[in-house]
Design a protein around this nucleic acid. Sequence first.
RNA 1: GGGCGAUUAGCUCAGCCGGUUAGAGCGCUUCUCUGAUAAGGAUGAGGUCCCAGGUUCGAAUCCUGGAUCGCCCUCCA
Length: 1034
Amino acid sequence: MAHRPVDPNQSFPDLEQEVLQRWRERDVFRESLRRRQGAEPWVFYEGPPTANGRPGAHHVLARVFKDIYPRFKTMRGHYVERKAGWDTHGLPVEIAVQKKLGIENKKEIEEYGIAEFNRQCRESVFEYLEEWDALTERIGFWIDLGDAYRTLDATYIESVWWALRQIYDKGLLYEGHKVVPYCPGCGTALSSHEVALAYRTVKDPSVYVRFPVVEDGGPLQRGDELLVWTTTPWTLVSNAAVAVDPELTYVRAKTGPLEAPVVLAEALVERVLGCDDVKVLERFPGAAIDGVRYEPPFSYIPGREYGERGHSVLLGDFVTADDGTGLVHTAIAFGEDDFQLGWRYGLNVVNPVRLDGTYDERIGKYAGRFVKDADADLVEDLRARGKLLKSEEYEHAYPFCWRSGDPLLYYAKPAWYIKTSQLRDRLLAANDSVNWHPEHIKAGRMGNWLENNVDWALSRERYWGTPLPVWRCEEGHLHCVGSFDELEELSGVRLEDPHRPYVDEVGFPCPSCSGRMQRVPEVIDVWFDSGAMPFAQHHAPFENAERFGARFPADFICEALDQTRGWFYSLLAISTLLFDRSSYENVVCLGLILDKDARKMSKSVGNVVDPWTVIDEYGADAFRWYFFTAKQPWDGYQFDTERVGDGVRFFLKQLWSTYSFYVLYANANAIEEPPAEPGTELEAWILSRLGDATETVTRGLDEYDTTTAGRAIAAFVGDLSNWYVRRSRRRFWDGDPAAFGTLRECLLTVAKLLAPFAPFVADELYDNLDGSEPSVHLCDWPAPRPRDLDLERDMAVARETVRLGLSARTAAKVKVRQPLREAVVVAAGRERDAIEALADVVREELNVKELRFVERADELGSYEIKPNYRTLGPRFGKHMPAVAEAVGSLDPAIVADALREGRHIGVSVGGTDHEVGPDDLHLRLEPLEGYQLEREASHAVALDLSLDDDLRREGLAREVVHAVQNARKAAGLAVEDRIALTLGGDGELLDAARTHEAYVSGETLAVEVAYDGDGKGEPATIEGLELRIALTRA
RNA sequence: GGGCGAUUAGCUCAGCCGGUUAGAGCGCUUCUCUGAUAAGGAUGAGGUCCCAGGUUCGAAUCCUGGAUCGCCCUCCA
């Protein structure tokens, strides 16, 4: 037998296991690379996941999109290397280890020992590696896991050091004193993307505090009170100054309950003081009170410590009158604006808060308390001392540490930065060269982010990460080490493991003075690690410089939308810093997966989908197919496992049963490799449609649009199964080579088109139908067959005719099994030609003896003429209503005739004559009452419903055949089994069967038919008459 | 608070460089075909294309404003 028999009820998950086994045995992935060695590379970069957690459905999403395009490009002839990668450093890893060890903070880590702590991190990072590898293989994501880059490898780290040295040499790496979001629990500053992870809406105190003016100045007098608003009372102890907007109008106002006049923005008087009893004494711009001195709310830190302008009014352009009082409390160490303002006025940074988030000894009785917890007592203190105007609650979004859950403090700290803001224009230019999918990311999300670029806060005061390769001596001289060789030259030490704590122990003499250099304590942001992968994965430039050069930039990367600020940015920033260009050309940006009720998947809600359950139930192909075709991936998914099942039922099963149909009859007819030459119009048509599908799929994948591409495959398979095969079954029973050749060609091409989408089922089809290569994935992408557009259009008309005819049958309640004498088709010109050319198909499908054409439907209905707005609109513009009216008043019969002959029609609009052609008008048939007629536009089908005895007998014969077929099926016979048939029962039925005995025996594969079956066999009922059917395998 | 995106049938989604009757599939009615298909075909019900304005001869489509949802950003003191 030429083909393996196919189980029509094949389980796809089982099938996939077999295919996986075949891929392993035949080493298909590596072979697909070997065959393209030397071909033009198409470069893919893997954005490294972290393997310290279980992979979820969203990882499957990313990984199947990372798979489909490399498979496609490989089939298109490119050499597509796929090097895997793992992100291994960072706080999440440390947190996991801390949890495991029961360690709460940095102090305890150091007591535990950095060496052992980092050893545990190194282990933990690959805790779920096996599951990642297993899932990766199971979903058919072809990537070289054996040659994965890992950010913890010494070679990788050395490349990162090289990159930092380049940046340092350009003067773009610096230590700054900046206000950063700081987590007192983790003891580290957070990057902006970490901050973004956990904003929560919280209620904080909202207090209005009175700051008495201590000397007359401008419009103010000693004793007046500045009204200052804040939501962080804990920062009031280090109040350094008050900021006002120089342009904004302020007032000095007297209000009933208060003795002294108060100062605030005019726009906020009503909201802050209430509307009653307020007397405005003065109005003046903020600039008028520049320099006014006041008494701070707490006296722990004397004004002189801040410098000349301590505890005075400063001018700041960030002040608004949207909230508060228009006078802004400024605490230099705890806010970016505050810090900037202080810097401009030369104020000193005084920070009375320790790294653990508690006040230091300068803050008297509050010393040692966690600052956020002191809010309430501080407010009480103010109230007791008569400094408070009022205190409320304020609801706003406040950032928390995404790991520890502690509230973040904005905090002035020394940190290392990369001066990316200096390269803003270059970053924008690099971004401009990228093709984003979807397109709006470029100018939108990514573009906006780059426009507002701030320097990259690079350093982390942590342990498990790439050490910042900066050494410093006691004099403050700096040296950035760019390689292990250099470090060895300087220090005489060759590092086995460049991680902390070993690297911390390496010191060397300062090149500039007599001091000794030690490394600064920080490690770097993990995003710098992953962003360095284009060269670091190859240990370039130390090794493989050429290899790197040939694989830079990437043609394609793909990650979820949240990487805009993550990997997409770090890749872009690093390559712009080093090479002044983007490291990628095409990006597919995937949306988030929500559950079926559109809620975000989270462990706490318990709605996380375990990918294995989906794969076990429906298979990897189905899972992939869902992601590729359910919708455009960037809009995100409302994931419902049942939708995955739909794809199996309506697409994969349909394809599978078409395939099993082929194999069944090809084997039955001993057909092996039939020629793909069309024998009929129907075959020419399906091959033309195949060309169409090939073009659409190719274009779709070229444009990173799997949705359109995949849906085109499904549409084609629908046509193949529901029209071509359905209308051609007899030819397969008869063993017609052209039919087999056509269907095989279609299935094999579908297998190739489908290979990147559903690599398992595609390979199974290919292997069983052709198999000349070890796998479909080693084949070339199919070239589109030539189209026959006229034929495609004709077939559409014929199918429409059939639809109308069937509809007419339904309306007349006449079964399709009952043959009818004639269908009257109203059609002319090209439509008529089309239907005539495909008359056999139409007749068979409608089960009518004849098609009769009428050009004019006068006896069936009347025409109505409608203007074609699409063509006439642009021509006539605002005269369209008049045109529509003119068209409406034409004589339909005359117009119909004229159009049929292709003549133009004259219409008069506003006294001017115009000509309109056939394309400018739509004809629409209005049926007369009393006719059984189905119509669409100018095209209609009517049925002759009169029956004579012959037709009736023929109908009954078909009923008999139908009943016998059911009996065959019930008896469990194979489709090719011959039978001996014995019929009995009602005389009219037997008479019909006898009359059409050749037909009956041919259809039912009966080698003999007897009519003496009364009382024998299984009873069946046809139109109320009894039929007895007895059959045996002959 | 700012930016970006989304909102079309019960469900999942097309359509959207304006063209007058808004589509598909699923689900649901009714009927039906079958020597591959727990399939197919026909049929019916089901839509204020989120809302309100505007531009236009004509708006699901373009503009403005708003609502809701999602994501991202944001020290708003």
